[in-house]
Every structure is written in C-alpha cells, then in structure tokens.
Amino acid sequence: MASLGIDVLFKGTNFLRLLQGLWVSIEISLISVVLSILLGLIVGVLMTINNKILHAILKVYLETVRIMPQMVLLFIVYFGTTRVFGWDMSAEASAIFVFTFWGTAEMGDLVRGSIKSIPVIQFESALALGMDKIQTYFYIILPQTVRRLIPLSINLITRMIKTTSLVMMIGIVEVLKVAQQIIEANRKVSPNAAFGVFLVVFLLYFIVCWPISRLATYLEKRWA
C-alpha cells in the first residue's frame, strides 16, 4: 500500500480537506443541477413553440453554450463582469451561474427532444377530450416527457459534477485541487502519491455519481 502513496492522505488533516473539497464540488453541482432541471424544463417547452424570433434566440443560446468551453464561460463571468461592469460576483456565484447557464441549455435541448418524440396523437387526443393547452402539457405531455428524460439527464448531471473540477481556475479549492495540493506537498517524501491520491478521488466521484445512476434506474422502472 505504501508504494501507492495512499498514506499521505492520513497525514494531518489531509483526508478531511479532501472531503471538504468534495463537498464544495457537490454543493456547486447540486445547486446548478436543480436550477438547470427547473429552468431546462421551461426552456425546453419554449423550444417547441412555433415562433421564429423565440426559436432564433434559443438557437443562439444553445449554440453559444455548445461552442464555448466552460472554462471560457467561467473566465467571462468571473473576471469579465468585473472588468466591464465592475460587478464583484463571488467565485461560487460565478460557478453556479455558469453551470446553470450551461445545464439549462443542454437540459432544454433534451426536453425539446423528448417532447418532440411524443406522438402527435397524444396532443390531439387530449385536445379532443376538451383539455386546454396547459392541461395537455401538465397531465399528458410532461409526465411522458419526464420518463424519457431520466436516462438522458443523468448523463448530463454526472457530466456537470465532473466538470466542476474547472472551478479551480477561478480560485475555488475543490476536491481535485486539494488532491493536487496534497500530491505536491509530498512530492519529495512520497513521489508516487499521485497514483494513490487520484485513485481515492476517482472513488469519491464514483460514490457521488453512482447513487444518482441507481436512482435513475429505479425511477425509470417505477414510472415505466
């Protein structure tokens, strides 16, 4: 075990710091994911509306998010807004904003795809039963959409959790940064620590992402 360098994690408060770093990652991703799902549902429904102007705006939004690397978005929001507008947004707020901005666009596109995949006959039948548009969406379309969405959105959620490692670029010390700090601080005494420490980080990410994936499978079965 010593050759893996895992022992460096038990020096001082190293392991506790790693867990604190993990909590920072979870906190940022959890808030962003919840906001992205809520806003993504709205944006997704808007995307299906036949309105050229709205369509163009959402297209620009989605493409912007797809083209811009998250790192660039983080820099623009954290440093750019201070430069241009003089706002002093905290690093955490910037991170949550960027991840929500990204997640909403992708989630919206997933919602759009799921709604489009529901046969037109479902809309027509609901309308024939005398439901109005809002009722149709709430009672007929959205429940079916949500079921189709689960596997797709799990993909997005776990990707968002893993991408939070980028926030170290705006000074937030999250789990991966703590890992690097521990490895570097022990470079001389334990040169192989990188392997062991990253292995533990891998396990931590797994412990976070796995229950989400299990929950998804459960929900998929239950709502099928």
Binding site: I31, L35, G86, W87, S90, A93, I96, T100, F101, T104
Partner: peptide, 21 residues
C-alpha cells in the same frame, strides 16, 4: 438567470457599488 444563480448562494454580493459602474 444571473439573479437566480446569485440568490441561490444566498449572499448576493454587493455589486462593487453602483457608483463605480
């Protein structure tokens, strides 16, 4: 979106004061 994001962290950071902007 910015507002929602910022509010979510609860601490709506004082925006470098309107004077400076």
């Amino acid at each position: 979106l910015a507002l929602v994001g910022t509010l979510a962290v609860s601490g709506l950071t004082a925006c470098g004061s309107s004077a400076s902007s």
